[in-house]
């Protein structure tokens, strides 16, 4: 397990839990990162507020990789602008592309995401596109230079779990860059299941932000993700199509 690294765009990580930082107090970020064992945290880019003196970067420990998202972008052009601004903020060249045309379901626009991926990969970004799990789109994203692919499990913030399970499995089986399940994972058991399927990592935000005890839930997710990873690496036991199979010897019974 010590050699089991998550590699994204040539960068190595030990943790397979990507933490969101939205919808909770900045003061909880440090303990969330610690209890999650996270090495990557997502951020959003917004118009700066002249009245606010506190900045989220003051709460993120050194050595944590920042993964800015392009939320708010409605098309590739806006995503590219946000990504460039994020890089100008001086915290590395990772970017999670997030392009949405509607605010009701917040579903990613796969076609615009491919366009933005191509532009940003050429500019040297480590591009991690959030997408609706579709094999053809995932292949196009990889061809466009994506360092990973981030399929949604269910709608953002819904905590509904692996609604797209079958399609994520296809991506895991067919795509050579890390498949990071993003959006909709609400419980540690769902994160564990995705990892058992062979997902490379899990990204979660709302599951923690809406939990009763955020740092404790971060720790629960950490354990679930590690358990799922170990199960995947060890190879899951087979499932019988029908009938039963005894675990005990079928000889030496106390009868006859």
């Amino acid at each position: 397990m010590d050699n089991d690294k998550l590699i994204i765009g040539g960068h190595e990580f030990n943790s397979r839990f990507i933490l969101g930082s939205g919808k909770y107090s900045m003061k909880l970020i440090e303990s969330a990162i610690k209890d999650a064992g996270a090495e990557i945290i997502t951020l959003a880019v917004r118009r700066a507020n002249t009245k606010e003196q506190e900045n989220i970067l003051d709460y993120i420990p050194q050595g944590i990789t920042l993964l800015p998202n392009t939320s708010g972008a409605r098309n590739a052009e806006e995503a590219v602008r946000i990504a460039r601004l994020a890089r100008e903020l001086g915290c590395g060249n990772f970017v999670k592309i997030e392009i949405m045309r509607d605010s009701k379901y917040l579903l990613p626009d796969n076609q615009e995401t491919i366009k933005a991926t191509e532009i940003l990969a050429k500019e040297g970004f480590v591009v991690m596109p959030y997408m609706y799990p579709d094999l053809n789109v995932a292949r196009d994203l990889v061809s466009a230079g994506a360092a990973s692919v981030m399929p949604l499990a269910s709608p953002i913030g819904s905590n509904k779990g692996l609604a797209t399970k079958e399609f994520i499995q296809i991506l895991v089986d067919e795509i050579d860059v890390p498949i990071i399940v993003d959006a909709g994972i609400g419980r540690p058991s769902q994160a564990c299941e995705a990892m058992e399927m062979g997902a490379a990592a899990i990204m979660a935000n709302t599951a923690l932000a809406t939990a009763g005890d955020l740092p404790m839930m971060a720790s629960a997710f950490k354990n679930a993700i590690e358990a799922g990873r170990k199960a995947y690496l060890s190879g899951l036991g087979r499932v019988l199509t029908r009938g039963a199979s005894a675990s005990d010897p079928l000889t030496g019974f106390l009868r006859d």
């Binding site: 969101g20 930082s21 939205g22 919808k23 909770y24 900045m26 970020i29 997502t42 951020l43 959003a44 880019v45 917004r46 118009r47 700066a48 507020n49 900045n55 989220i56 970067l57 920042l66 800015p68 998202n69 939320s71 460039r84 601004l85 994020a86 100008e88 903020l89 915290c91 953002i156 913030g157 959006a183 990204m203 935000n205 709302t206």
Partner: peptide, 27 residues
């Protein structure tokens, strides 16, 4: 983008559209 090194040399003109951004919490 206006690089930090060019803040002193970049004149703001009538009709310019400027965005000033920073990081906030997000998923």
């Amino acid at each position: 983008i206006v690089p930090k090194s060019q803040y002193g040399d970049t004149l703001l003109c009538d009709g310019d559209n400027v965005e000033v951004v920073s990081f906030v919490g997000g998923g």
